[in-house]
């Protein structure tokens, strides 16, 4: 009985002592934080994707409240939440169109020639260092899916034929996949832009055809057929200038002899 009292008193005493200490420390050392930071943080997507270039949403919220970065710092948040943050902080926000990632390559396993068997680290960065990976095309997709790993929004997946497929609904336009791709075949474009040359190959026609079935050979047909002047060919590779071509989904898509020009929205349907 006596030892019980000693145990209870000593343990209780220690507990009490430290509880008081923690309470005091809590009161004395409390960090004063602008309550707005918490509110802004709640409105941000909370994916900590890093598209703003800061360590996470919390850091971005802090700088937004301090006024060091604008609402546009977060490319991911939708217009609705940007409006609310804007109201909270007294900033105005122009509703803009979101960007969507586009994979500018069709060199899936069906189309591209295979030159080797790669058995190293299963990342694009790894395979590109080993003689440029398994696939013949030195410009196209490597197929190891670094872009799928880096996506915080579950919006890009590796398709069956070894090409990443973007979910245009889920994509928030953060640009992480474009950043990580060692071949730079992923680009960010406005959602309304639909027609693209899905190829980056700059080889001459014959060499390019050997690498991949669906390749731009620089034949100039698109330049001739499109009257808006939106298509140009440089280094045996065509590209679209959407400011001239606009959102017109029609025209040279079906004229391209190698089917390298595609309407990405229609193709996915």
């Amino acid at each position: 009985m006596e030892s019980l009292i000693y145990a209870v008193l000593s343990m209780g005493g220690i507990g009490l002592f430290f509880a008081v200490l923690i309470t005091l420390a809590n009161a004395k050392l409390k960090v004063e934080e602008d309550p707005k930071i918490e509110l802004v943080n709640d409105l941000l997507p909370g994916a900590n994707c890093g598209a703003c270039g800061l360590p996470g949403c919390g850091a971005c919220a802090e700088l937004m409240v301090k006024g060091e970065v604008g609402l546009s710092a977060c490319p991911v948040a939708d217009d609705d939440s940007k409006d609310q943050i804007g109201k909270l902080l007294g900033l105005s926000h122009e509703a803009g169109e979101k960007d969507v990632a586009v994979v500018l390559c069709q060199g899936g396993l069906k189309n591209v020639s295979i030159k080797a068997d790669y058995d190293g680290v299963k990342t694009c960065l790894g395979s590109t260092l080993v003689s440029g990976g398994e696939r013949q095309c030195a410009y196209g997709c490597l197929g190891n899916g670094d872009c799928c790993v880096v996506c915080s929004f579950d919006a890009i997946h590796m398709g069956e034929d070894g090409l990443p497929i973007v979910d245009r609904e889920k994509c928030t336009g953060c640009g992480k996949c474009a950043e990580v791709c060692p071949r730079d075949i992923i680009e960010m474009h406005k959602e309304s832009h639909q027609v693209f040359v899905l190829c980056k190959n700059q080889d001459k026609g014959k060499a390019a055809k050997e690498a991949c079935k669906v390749v731009c050979i620089g034949c100039q047909i698109c330049v001739k057929k499109d009257e808006s002047g939106g298509f140009t060919v440089k280094n045996f590779l065509a590209s679209v200038d959407h400011s001239k071509y606009g959102s017109n989904p029609e025209l040279p898509t079906d004229k391209c002899p190698t089917n390298a020009i595609v309407n990405v929205v229609r193709a996915s349907e």
């Binding site: 145990a7 209870v8 008193l9 343990m11 507990g15 509880a19 923690i22």
Partner: peptide, 9 residues
């Protein structure tokens, strides 16, 4: 905290 300590003791 105190109660936890007491119960444990």
């Amino acid at each position: 905290l105190t109660m936890t300590a007491i119960i444990s003791g």
